[in-house]
Nucleic acid binder design. Structure first.
Lengths: 117, 117
DNA sequence: TCAATACTTAAGCGCGGGCTTGACTGATTC
DNA sequence: GAATCAGTCAAGCCCGCGCTTAAGTATTGA
């Protein structure tokens, strides 16, 4: 649970690409084959396969092959990790900023050098 | 509000790097100067500055220079956008998966080919 | 069995990311 | 005013990313 850093790394890097986010959104409405996923994308099929490999390495997508078609679907668990990471930090910062705001609203303790109008 | 894609792109790309996440975590405990941020990092100061530029372009960090020192701090608003994006998708997928689970729990409609013990 | 389908593998190319070193500017301290 | 400190700018290096084309492998339907 400490090597979570590498996981987050991979998930964020995977999601940082617009094409891969498009694939992820498409998979949000249900599983799909490689060719289906590739159809609307303005690139060759091997390129899409490479994007899918990135998504699969990151754990966001899982796939299984039946016959000659590979079906891909989402696995939301990994996303939960990242969402948690972000939410944790954001709430911490905002709490900090709120406290800072309170201090600034109470003049008399540590007067800011510039007036606050 | 439609060009949010580019913003998300930048924020995710910025957070996909471990060094930049370390900077972000450090800034979570309060503003800091460039040199302070660079101190624990195993790289040259210009390298850190470049990371800070990425963070600043993404909107995660803001900075201002007083005299010869530049003070950096976090701006949580951009992070909210990404958290929202992730949360939206995750909840959608999980709802989908839940519905799928319900269907599988109600045999008689579309019997799965394998028994579920 | 032959042809079409659905990938898969491999090689290669251009570009940008992350890092370095070296030289420089501007603020502060002695 | 010289030395130091904090940061900036510029050039260059290396490697991985995103993409391509070309050729190969199974699977499937006629």
């Amino acid at each position: 649970m400490l090597n979570q850093a590498a996981d987050i790394d991979q998930v964020l890097a995977a999601l940082a690409d617009p094409t891969r986010r498009a694939i992820v959104e498409r998979l949000g409405s249900g599983p799909a084959s490689v060719t289906t996923l590739a159809a609307p994308l303005p690139m060759s099929l091997p390129a899409v396969v490479q994007h899918l490999q990135v998504l699969e390495r990151s754990g966001l997508v899982v796939s299984e092959k039946h016959g000659r078609i590979r079906t891909c679907r989402l696995d939301p668990t990994r996303l939960e990790t990242v969402e948690q990471w972000i939410a944790d930090r954001r709430s911490t910062w905002e709490r900090r900023l709120d406290r800072l705001g309170e201090v600034l609203d109470k003049p008399g303790q540590q007067p800011p050098k510039a007036g606050m109008k």
